[in-house]
Design a protein around this nucleic acid. Structure first.
Length: 337
DNA sequence: CCTTATGATAAGAAAGCTTG
DNA sequence: CAAGCTTTCTTATCATAAGG
């Protein structure tokens, strides 16, 4: 494989000139530029990213950290980041933390060593813990690159962020179930110590209150955003014959656990019980479930990546926070016939 | 003396080699 | 045996030259 020096020799110019052609910087006459381009094409020259990174002391890559790669919602974020990064000439490095703060720290350290140009971080479940945040802050200082936090807001924000109005989303989802004619509406929550889970519960409660729908505590299924827990809770409900008219499932795993239990009992969503889910599951369409859901109005990954690239180009911008709005999609599973 | 154009050189990390 | 130079490849910076 040829290097820049050999290309320069063949073209009969200095390697600085070749470098200027590659990077479209500085002064190069039209004539020499064409000549160099012809040589580069003929010998299929491609610059060494290794040497380029060494020289520039950075990699033109964006690090992305996601807590749970098997959740379709996080996949959506990842896909969004990747597409915007690609359009702008960045590559991405990916790390999955499985919600483990230690793994997250290791991932950030690896990105520090890689000299990433920026990082998109979706923190672990510990995101509200002040110890965790103090450690995180220290590490992020060492990164010397901008960071955008996604989906889980730190209580002491230290960088740009893209978040979601989960309260409003839950309100709208619950409202859809109410307008769908359901009299008793249950909810599968996450751990309510988490702000993210709490606001979804609060949005539900507010909608119920605004429409004067009585709430029954037996329909509050206190879950933890896992499939197994949601499954167990719904199973118990069915066995005790205490299923409400409709269920609002507040994350993807709650939805899947719920569906598993329902399908296992030979019940049909839309017929035996209504449902609106938080976030979109494409396989629900494949199964013909007509599952209504409240999704995100914009792709949070795309938004975060644009924000990060802006910040890399312009480090002195004031700190920015964007709140993505909900997007309700009704397909029929909310209607009591 | 400024603009355009080009080449020489240092810097960047680390392994391998040479020299004292 | 250790200090120091070379090598890898590219970019950024500086120096230089020509032409207006």
């Amino acid at each position: 494989m040829l290097n820049i020096r050999e290309i320069a020799k063949i073209a009969g110019v200095g390697k600085s000139t070749v470098s200027r052609v590659i990077n479209q910087t500085g002064y190069v006459s039209d004539e020499t530029r064409k000549k160099i381009e012809a040589v580069m094409q003929e010998y299929e020259y491609s610059p060494s990213a290794v040497a380029r990174n060494l020289s520039k002391q950075q990699t033109n890559s964006i690090g992305i950290i996601i807590p749970q790669a098997n959740n379709p919602f996080f996949d959506e974020i990842l896909t969004g980041v990747e597409s915007i990064a690609g359009e702008n000439g960045y590559t991405i490095s990916f790390s999955n933390t499985a919600n483990d703060p230690k793994k997250e720290r290791d991932a950030i350290k690896a990105f520090i060593e890689q000299r990433v140009s920026g990082m998109i971080l979706q923190p672990t479940f510990s995101y509200e813990d002040s110890n965790y945040q103090a450690q995180l802050r220290k590490l992020l200082m060492r990164l010397h690159a901008p960071v955008v936090v996604v989906d889980r807001p730190l209580s002491y924000p230290i960088c740009d962020g893209v978040f979601f109005d989960g309260y409003l989303a839950s309100y709208q989802a619950t409202e859809a179930l109410i307008k769908g004619g359901n009299k008793t509406i249950g909810i599968i929550t996450g751990n309510l110590n988490m702000k993210l889970a709490k606001e979804r519960f609060d949005g539900y409660l507010q909608a119920m209150q605004d429409y004067s729908i009585p709430v029954h505590e037996e329909y509050f299924l206190m879950g933890d955003f896992t499939l197994e827990k949601a499954y167990d809770l719904v199973k118990t409900c069915i066995q005790e014959d205490k299923l409400p008219d409709a269920m609002f499932t507040t994350n993807n795993f709650a939805t899947i656990g719920f569906m598993k239990a329902i399908i296992e009992e030979n019940m049909q969503i839309g017929k035996d019980i209504r449902c609106v889910s938080f976030d979109y599951l494409d396989f629900a369409d494949v199964l013909g479930l007509n599952l209504s859901y409240v999704g995100r109005h914009e792709n949070m990954g795309e938004l975060a990546c644009r924000m990060l690239i802006d910040r890399i180009a312009n480090p002195k911008l004031p700190r920015r926070t964007e709140i993505v709005q909900p997007h309700l999609v009704l397909k029929g599973s909310e209607l009591k016939k």
